[in-house]
Amino acid sequence: MSAADNDRTPVTVLGLGAMGTALATTFLENGHPTTVWNRSTDKAEELVAKGAVRAASAPDAAAASPLVVLCVLDHHAVSEILDTVGDALPGRVLVNLTSGTPAQARAAARWAAEHGADYLDGGILADPQDIGTSNGFLLYSGPQDAFETREATLKALGGVTTYIGTDAGQAAVYFMALIGVGYETWISYLHTLALVGAENIKATTFAPFVTGMFSGMNELLTAMARATDDGYYPPDAGPLGVHAALMDDLIATRQASGIDVERLEHVKSLIDRRVAEGHGADGFSSLIETIGNPST
Rank of each mutant, 00 (worst) to 15 (best):
A4C: 07
N38Y: 06
P66N: 06
T133I: 10
G136F: 07
I81E: 04
A126I: 07
A77G: 10
T12W: 04
T34L: 05
H279E: 13
A61H: 06
R274T: 15
L193V: 06
N218H: 13
A3K: 09
G283M: 12
G292F: 00
A276I: 08
V242G: 06
G159A: 10
G142W: 05
I201T: 14
R54M: 14
V196D: 09
L120N: 07
L157I: 04
E262R: 13
G123N: 06
G238M: 10
G132A: 09
A77T: 00
A237Y: 02
S215R: 07
Q170T: 13
T192G: 15
A281Y: 00
Q255M: 05
T41G: 03
V93D: 08
T192Y: 08
F137V: 01
G241R: 13
S295W: 05
G216A: 08
K43M: 10
F284A: 11
K268H: 13
T205E: 15
F147H: 13
A44H: 05
A63Q: 02
L23F: 14
I201W: 10
A227I: 06
S79N: 09
P143R: 08
G142E: 10
G132I: 13
D83V: 03
A63Y: 04
M19F: 06
A168Q: 09
G258Q: 09
R254P: 00
G17D: 11
T9H: 02
T205S: 15
G182H: 11
S79R: 08
P239M: 09
G231A: 03
T162Q: 12
T204F: 02
M213T: 10
